[in-house]
Design a protein around this nucleic acid. Structure first.
Lengths: 229, 229
DNA sequence: TTGGGGGATTGATTATTATCAATTGGCAGC
DNA sequence: GCTGCCAATTGATAATAATCAATCCCCCAA
């Protein structure tokens, strides 16, 4: 692994206060791998071999049931995933695939559990990381149960606008099929909901979207700090 | 706190390997309180003062948005709640209320964070507990996104039947209004879905339910070990 | 025993969402 | 430039779920 990549990982909150020794031990067993777009990295139901960290590219977490599939999360660098399965040494509840060419750091699960037992700072950071992840899922669940699909889209737009620099433009970096699944709707309804939002300050400018009247969009979306962000 | 109650808490996986000293310290600042039915214990948006543990009775975790409310979980003894908020020292994302008269053990949040820093076994147990909770929410999210309301009810019935002793009977211990909310449907649709399930091996016997043909119910419910349990 | 009262059920209607089908619209490769 | 392909859109319809309204059914108190 190159120095730049190692530094990137070192800067993760997860490793922030871990001793140099333990960090080096973790990294010595880890490896960084490149994957093309569309590769399934893990499959729900399998047992965890590695803790995964997205270093570059985009990864989709999804789950299937009865010939249906839904996107549960879309991860960007630098994010860990399947931490809970690694800690519990229990089967994955989600699958993961690359949405773009990606670089993934993989740390053998036993090494993670070992470092956890020996490094108090790492243990503390793991708890914190898990707590953050836990709260993210709770937000997603509230989003699903308390909003309809148009509201979910509107709030996603508001979040993306902020994430992409508050310049009233949102470029769609993932394909609409995946976005629809992430937002809990069909691609058809994503189209229709997007068309509906033209009544609430959103317009299409080519492949991207523009928020012409963010106050109107906010009024429709009713963003809530205990659901979004 | 009485010895019997202290023993109950001591037996929680969360405290299993914690040193006697640290456990006693935690308990010395904790207190056990009785609440009548229908009391709001915590309110989403507030900052956490205590880690809560249901020692007796039933507690509903719920959230509100735009004059709607949804039940996110229903807790029975012995379960901790709002652990993630305590660890992060961040606002609650859920509210909690008693559904029955209940006994709640409350441990001051700073004491929890303090014990976490000083007792490795406690830290390990906390991570494990959080990982378990995390996986529960992921299951809930999958349940919501991958099943319709009748399927959610059918699977809930199967789980309750197992939980209540595999005797093909399920007694409704929480009121239907709350159950409907928990299952992500209106009380009206809970009624209708229950009526529909008579086609799939379920019958009403007074206030309780009977599963006359569990194979038929399973065929309809399509239980999935990566969603249920 | 007899009324209330509140939850539960049922019915009718509307809203939301999914599905299926047809069409459009880019865009890569020729 | 064409052509074909695939995603995106649009339309029509069906399935699912929420809402509103009207009973019904218990259980409890007088």
């Amino acid at each position: 692994m190159r120095q730049a990549e190692s530094d990137l990982v070192r800067a993760l909150p997860l490793f922030e206060n871990v001793s140099e020794k333990h960090f080096d031990e973790l990294m010595s067993t880890a490896f960084l791998q490149r994957f093309p777009r569309g590769v399934t990295l893990i499959r729900e139901g399998d047992l965890p071999d590695f803790l995964h960290i997205v270093v570059e590219g985009t990864v989709e977490l999804f789950a299937s049931h009865d010939s249906h599939e839904t996107a549960l999360d879309i991860l960007e660098p630098v994010t860990t995933f399947i931490l809970a399965a690694v800690i519990r040494d229990d089967v994955y509840l989600k699958s993961a695939r690359t949405l773009t060419p990606a670089q993934i750091l993989m740390i053998p699960a036993p090494a993670v559990r070992n470092a956890f037992d020996r490094d108090a700072a790492f243990a503390r950071a793991l708890v914190n990381e898990l707590a953050v992840r836990y709260r993210c899922v709770v937000r997603s669940l509230k989003n699903e149960k308390l909003r309809n699909s148009a509201e979910r889209l509107a709030n996603w737009l508001l979040q993306e606008e902020a994430h992409q620099g508050n310049n009233r433009r949102v470029s769609l970096e993932i394909d609409k099929r995946t976005l629809a699944s992430r937002l809990g709707m069909t691609p058809e309804n994503l189209s229709r909901n997007l068309a509906q939002l033209s009544k609430h300050g959103v317009s299409k400018s080519g492949a991207d979207l523009a928020i012409d009247d963010i106050a109107a969009l906010r009024q429709f979306a009713k963003p809530n700090s205990l659901i979004d962000q």
